[in-house]
Every structure is written in structure tokens, then in C-alpha cells.
Amino acid sequence: MTIEDLRLLTALAEAGSLAGAARRILVNHASAWRRLGALEQRLGARLFERSRTGYTPTPAGEEAIAVASRVVTELGELERRLAGQDIRLTGIVRLTTAETLLDLLVPILAELRHVHPGIVVELVTTNAFFTLTRRDADIALRPAASAPEGLVARRLAGVATAAYATADYLEDRTGIDPLALDWLAPDDSLAHLGSARWIAEHVEQDRIVHRSSTLMGLLAAARAGMGVAPLPCYLGDTDTTLRRVLPPVPEMASALFLLTHPDLRRMVRIRAVLDMLAARLTPYRRYFEGKAQK
């Protein structure tokens, strides 16, 4: 059994579906399917029951998952300890972030490339939290309500969220209660967001005319004049087509965190990336906190 097999087992146990497991270990669905089939054939045991609702471990699968989880965790800990001893300003740094931050982030990475040409940044753009404890990534730049336990966290700014729509959409709706307008809402995959909870509590279901699994999807729908979208102020306030319908809502607020694992924070190339990100993003604090309206 290879380490790739072990990682597939742990990913499948966590995700509950082959597609979700494939995304976690960064392979395509067909490769994950073939790898699982080959593993079960070699072992002569069925590890998962397949159904429409997902993959459920068999007794043999539960035993295999327990061993796989322990081995993957121990290997990850060894990698972090050894990596933390690296004092070179060269090598790969794996950085995960949300797509809403790309316009701010990529110019900083271009500067980093100029200043430290030996550092190669692998940028993983996803709305899901990668697990830093298993080295899915070395650094995370994430808006979140709070920093995850067990990680070294640097809070760069508060992140305010307000409601936005186009001027054309609002033109014929002057004086209408904002809650009675057409709303664009996060879907269930973003149910953890404060904006999703606020909409569920304050906006009638029949006023929700569109849902999206990403904030960039909500931004595009708002730009198209479909209705009112909750957006981080660093997106909404800098878009010339949008106007605030509601000011920043405290229940929607979060914070921007720069995260890494304790075992990696003294690694020279990790520290170089962390320091540049913090230095270049801190001046944008007013934009993140909704205090720099256009």
C-alpha cells in the first residue's frame, strides 16, 4: 500500500464521496476511481459501500482508514519538523487563498518573485479550507470568523460585508424596504458565512431569486442587475458598477488571517512569504474594513 493509497483512504473517509476525495488530493475523479479499485483488488476486500448518497466504509474499510490516518498524520508531522529546519531562501511554498483575494494577492507574488527569485509559490485557489496540519498547504490567506486552533495566526484586518446592487437596478426601486428587494444569496456550501446566516434570518425565502456557491458568482450576478448581493466591502466598494444598499452589517463581519503551522514558521522561505504578504496587505486595511468607499 503506497502513501498515495493512504491519502486517498483518508480523503474519502473525510469527504464521503469520490469526487470530494479527488479534489482533496488534487487528482481527477477517474484517477481516484481507478486507484481505489486497484487497491481493493490487491487487498481482496471491499473497503467502501457505494450508494447514491456517497461512500460508506465497510468494517475492513474502517480498519484501513484508522491505520491510514495514523500513518498520514505521522508522516505529515515528520515533514513539518524536517522542513522547519530548512534555512534556504529557495524552494516551493504552497499558498492557499480565496478567489476574492486574487486581484490583491497576485501583484504581491510578482514582487516576491523579483525579490526572492529562488522561491516558487504554488497558489491553490479554493473556497474550502485546506488542512495545514497535513501540509495540503504551507500558508493560508483566509477571511474567517476566527483563526483555527493549533495554527500560527496573524490577523491582518477586519473584513466588513455590506449589501450591493447596481444603480440601474436601484433606480426604479427608491424607497422600497431593502429586505423586500430581490436578493442574491450564498448557497448551502457557504452556509458558514455570516452573510448566509443573516439572510436566512432576515430575508423571506420568496425574495431570494438567485444562489451561488462563490462570492465571485454573487458579484457577477449583482453586476448583471439581478438584485442585491452581500459582498465583502473590498469587492463591493471597489466595483464602479455597484452601490451600497445597506451599510456593513456587524453579523456578517469576519477577519483576514494569515496562517501557517507552528513547525513551519521559522522556515526561512515561509517567513519571507509571510512577511511580504503582511507588509503589502496591511495598507489595504481600510478597504477590508469598509472605510474606503469610492
Rank of each mutant, 00 (worst) to 15 (best):
L156H: 01
I92T: 11
P250F: 04
S69D: 14
I199T: 08
A153R: 06
L123R: 01
S17Q: 01
L78S: 12
V120Y: 11
G227L: 04
L218I: 00
T131S: 15
L219A: 08
I139Q: 03
Y234D: 10
E40Q: 14
H261Q: 09
M276G: 07
L218Q: 01
R271A: 15
I3R: 14
R46T: 13
Q293L: 15
T73E: 15
G61I: 00
A191H: 09
R207V: 03
R155S: 13
Q41R: 14
R266V: 10
P283K: 08
A68Y: 02
A22Y: 00
R94I: 07
T133L: 12
I25F: 05
L156A: 00
H114G: 11
V249E: 12
G158N: 06
A253W: 01
A292W: 13
E122W: 04
D187P: 05
L101P: 02
A255K: 00
S189C: 10
G118N: 03
R154Q: 13
V268T: 14
N28V: 08
L101C: 03
E201F: 05
T161M: 12
Y169T: 05
A145E: 12
D275C: 07
R173T: 08
E201S: 13
S212K: 04
R42E: 15
P248G: 00
G76I: 02
L39E: 01
A162V: 05
A160P: 01
L281N: 07
P143W: 02
L39H: 02
M267G: 12
L170P: 07
L9S: 04
A157W: 05
Q293Y: 14
L39S: 01
L132S: 05
H114F: 14
K291R: 15
L47T: 03
R271V: 08
I199S: 11
R50C: 04
S213C: 08
A19D: 11
E62R: 13
V71S: 06
L231M: 10
A45E: 15
D239N: 06
Q85W: 11
L277I: 10
A292D: 14
